Amino acid sequence: MIELYEFDISGNCHKVRLLLSLLNISYQSIELNRTEREQKSAEFLAKNSFGQVPVLKDGDLIIRDSQAILVYLARAYGEEKWFPNDAVQAAEITQWLSTAANEIAHGPAALRAHHKLGRAINLEAANQITQNLLNILEAQLAHKDWLATDNLTIADIAVYPYIALANEGKVDLADFPAIRKWLGRIEKLDGFVSMAGIELQS
C-alpha cells in the first residue's frame, strides 16, 4: 500500500491527500510529530535528505516534493487528462506547478506560516507577491473553469490548498469572484477532501 508521510497542517500535504482521494487510491497516512521535528530524524532523512514533508512511498519507490508526487500519481494512476502527454498542455500545467513552488510558497503560504505559526517573514514582500498572484489568477480564471487546460488537472490541485487557506494568512478573497468560483468547483468534486482552516465556498 502507498504510504504518505505528512503533517495534517500542511497545504503541500493536503494537495497530495486531495489527489489520492480524487483518484480513489487507498493509502496509509503516517503523521510525523512536527513539534518534535520528526522530519529531521535520521530515520526520516533516509527517506528525504531535505527533511521535509510530504514524502510518498509506493513499494520500493520514494518520492519527495508535493509537485513531483502529483506528477507521479497522475501518470501512474490517473487518466491522461491529469497530466497530458501533449507537449503544450504539459508545459501549461508545469508552469502552474512552478507557481505553486514559488509565488504561492513565498506569498499566501508564507503569510499563513507567519500569522498562524508565528514564522518570521518579509511581510511586505509576501503581501505584494500575494496580491500580484491573486490578480493573475483572477484574470486566468475569469473566462476559464480550470487553470491550465479545459479540464481539471494537477495544476489546479497544486494551486488549490494555499489559496483555499488564504484566510489563515489574513488574505481576503472577497474581491476575487473568479477565484472563489474556481475553489467552489474543486470543492464540489466527487472525492474532494478538506482540511482544517479551509473555509469552503460551497
Rank of each mutant, 00 (worst) to 15 (best):
D58L: 00
L152D: 00
A68G: 04
N132V: 07
Q52S: 11
Y77D: 09
V71K: 10
I129G: 01
A148I: 03
Q52H: 03
E80N: 02
K144Q: 14
Q52F: 08
A126L: 08
R119F: 15
N135P: 06
R180P: 09
D175I: 10
A76F: 01
E103Y: 12
R180F: 04
D145V: 08
E103P: 03
Y162A: 03
K81N: 12
V71S: 02
T153E: 03
S66T: 03
R64F: 13
A74V: 06
L134M: 01
A155S: 09
G78H: 03
Q52L: 14
S49K: 15
V55L: 08
H115A: 11
N127G: 12
A87Y: 13
Q67P: 08
N151S: 15
A158L: 00
N85Y: 11
I157W: 04
N102W: 09
I121C: 05
A101M: 06
R112H: 07
Q89Y: 05
G169L: 03
Y72V: 00
A68T: 11
A174D: 14
A91Q: 08
N122P: 02
K144E: 10
K81T: 11
G78T: 00
V159R: 04
R75A: 12
K170Q: 15
I179G: 07
L137G: 00
A142V: 06
P108Q: 01
A110C: 02
A91P: 10
D150S: 14
N48L: 04
A174C: 13
H115M: 10
A158G: 06
N135R: 13
A91I: 08
D150H: 12
R119S: 13
V171F: 10
L97P: 00
L61C: 02
L70V: 02
A100W: 07
Y77K: 10
Y77F: 12
E138N: 04
I69M: 01
G59I: 05
K57Y: 09
P54L: 01
H106K: 15
E79K: 13
Q95L: 13
F83N: 07
I62K: 05
N151W: 10
I93R: 01
L70F: 10
Q89L: 14
L134D: 06
Y162R: 11
D145E: 15
I157L: 03
A91S: 13
A126K: 07
E103I: 01
K81P: 08
I154D: 06
D60L: 10
D172Q: 02
V53W: 04
A142C: 02
I154H: 10
G51T: 05
I62H: 06
A139M: 10
L134Q: 04
A110S: 13
K170Y: 11
F50W: 12
Q131F: 08
P177W: 08
N122M: 03
L134S: 05
P161R: 07
L70M: 00
R75Y: 08
W146E: 02
L117T: 11
L133Y: 10
L165F: 00
A90L: 02
R112L: 12
A113L: 15
A174W: 05
Y77I: 09
T130M: 09
